[in-house]
Write a protein that binds this DNA or RNA. Structure first.
Lengths: 345, 345
DNA sequence: CTGAAAGCGCTTACAG
DNA sequence: CTGAAAGCGCTTACAG
């Protein structure tokens, strides 16, 4: 009783062959009920647990899904990882995690490591680099949020989502608007920008629209905002949309440093709805990515081994919070719209 | 050439036995150089990669380390996870990730799943629950930051670290001080509190010290701070130390809502040095946890299979930023010490 | 120093 | 419907 029990022990105790035990384990209904019960009793009596390694060796399949993200400490990716873990668990799989640090070589070597370990499939949020990737894999691979090589992509419809923000700004009455884009070498960066810009143009050809490009991080948003907000009040944009929450929070920070009231004098909107978006002051209006659903689709695609998988785009939703409001009234009363009245939403 | 090559193929090509190939793979220096070279040539020629599953079945060992954290979206834990992944990679291991969601049952079932998969060892940041855990495991387990069951704990010396904050407050001249503790049912919560309180008492028996208890999260800090800061200025604490950065950021938020200048009128210090601590306004004075070192020690302990592993405590360091300053001068000039002068540091 | 062989714990055609 | 047997790809005593 000290040794870990195997199929053999179960078979002996149940008085059947190991083949039968294996079939019961696999849930084959061809096994007669009497035998099946005996086997189950023996399994319970021995506390038998199948040896995952042996099974994997035979079938060259495991119950592990590999996830590669650029940086797990980035709140958006850690949210994705949490969702992926949850989705994997729903299918009784485990998650193996690796970070690429936006390095294509690291990405490739993690893929190799996953393949060596016979993972069931790989979900990859691609590194943000131009150098193209080429990978051949026996196991299915899907891109999540950012496309990797030419593998199918599960993401939100970035353009459509960004247009929601454009609509929101427009409805509030903003006509001097700025957009802080993400890197042009990412599909997400490009699509969000296009979606936002095209919608504004469609709504009002004469609306003033300034466009800047940066990385997706805090610093990028802050640096761009400082430049943007240095202009005199009557020239300055009254609303800034950013391609990520982190950028938007950088903008918020710059605004605070400059003593500009948000949203009284300046409206700010982000993208992603990371946890922090709801914790800054004022809380950030943003676009919520349905990470649980995205991850669930990705896992499903891996496990069902769809023959010709295509891209899938889910819808995102606008979350309106305290960082957006109508533009300051032209008569110059903007200070009245300030802190007290709005920031707690 | 379409089939994946095995030791057998390598052996055939190199003209040796599979045993010899295996020995070369294991780096045994008993193998003669001539043979070794032949084997290496064959490996290169075939692009051979060892089958991890087969090896694991034979040796019942894998190159995977399991990590369980309460919640990967918590920035402190995602930092821990990043450090653990890095440390694992340094030893050519992969990381399997699971979240317990502060649920002991989930924790146990993740441990079982890891054991089933023959992980090399398990690192666990224990769930924050009172219900005790009992686990028997053939593979080594270490607790990281928060003790799990009676497994050895790798952590900073929480008490000593918290005392650094006490010293800092005292040196700045604060004598009306508040401490927002973490949950009393965590070692970290208790140790940090004791360390802080004892040091203040040791420095000045008559210093006013108010103590509150909460969870480690943002909301907890904010709620407690609102109560605390509602008092009239001459009664109010001039410095608040929190048991976590998240609490401290909650305090910061409450202070801003109440229009209190930080650090002009109120100093705030956190604990952990999460990424965000350096991004809030003003930047947060805090205690930095050496997560890379902690994770590295934990991995080492697992891989070296120390026979009688004991707890290990590393030192943390105080990071002084813009959220702490001398208390407002009693004559009432506190406003002069405000924003402009300090917040950018 | 190296080879031949057993065996890790499963699964799955193959018979019957 | 079930059993006996082969085999997944390694590692490791055991001889020599």
């Amino acid at each position: 009783m000290d040794k870990i029990p195997t199929v053999k022990d179960v078979a002996t105790l149940a008085g059947v062959s190991v083949g039968t035990v294996s079939r019961v384990l696999a849930g084959e209904l061809s096994v007669k009920t009497v035998l099946r019960d005996k086997v189950h009793d023996a399994i319970d009596a021995l506390g038998y647990r199948p040896n995952v390694m042996a099974r994997a060796l035979r079938t060259s399949k495991t119950d592990v899904i590999g996830l590669i993200v650029p940086d797990i400490t980035n709140p958006f990716f850690s949210q994705m990882a949490a969702s992926a873990e949850r989705a994997a668990l729903e299918h009784r799989h485990s998650l193996m995690l690796a970070s690429s640090h936006n390095d294509r070589e690291a990405e490739q070597s993690h893929i190799s490591a996953f393949l060596d370990r016979s993972v069931r499939g790989i979900i990859i949020v691609a590194a943000n680099v131009t150098h193209p990737a080429h990978v051949k894999s026996k196991v299915p691979i899907v891109s999540l949020d950012r496309r990797f090589a030419d593998f199918p992509l599960i993401s939100i419809n970035h353009a459509e989502a960004a247009a929601l923000v454009a609509d929101h700004f427009y409805e509030l009455g903003h006509r001097r608007i700025a957009y802080i884009a993400g890197p042009a070498d990412t599909e997400a960066g490009r699509a969000r920008r296009e979606g936002f810009v095209n919608r504004i143009r469609a709504l009002d050809e004469k609306a003033e629209l300034k466009i800047f490009s940066g990385r997706f991080d805090y610093e990028s948003g802050e640096v761009i905002a400082r430049r943007l907000l240095a202009q005199p009040p009557n020239m300055r944009s009254t609303a800034i949309a950013a391609a990520s929450d982190q950028q938007a929070i950088g903008v918020l920070r710059a605004a605070r440093d400059l003593g500009l009231d948000v949203p009284g004098v300046l409206s700010i909107a982000g993208f992603d709805d990371i946890h922090l978006a709801n914790l800054v002051v004022p809380r950030l209006t943003t676009v919520r990515q349905p990470t649980d659903q995205l991850a669930r689709r990705a896992v499903k695609l891996l496990l069902e081994r769809v023959s010709e998988p295509g891209d899938e785009a889910l819808s995102a939703s606008l979350i309106i919070r305290g960082s957006t409001a109508p533009p300051p009234d032209q008569a110059g009363h903007q200070l009245k719209t300030g802190r007290k009245s709005r920031q707690k939403e």
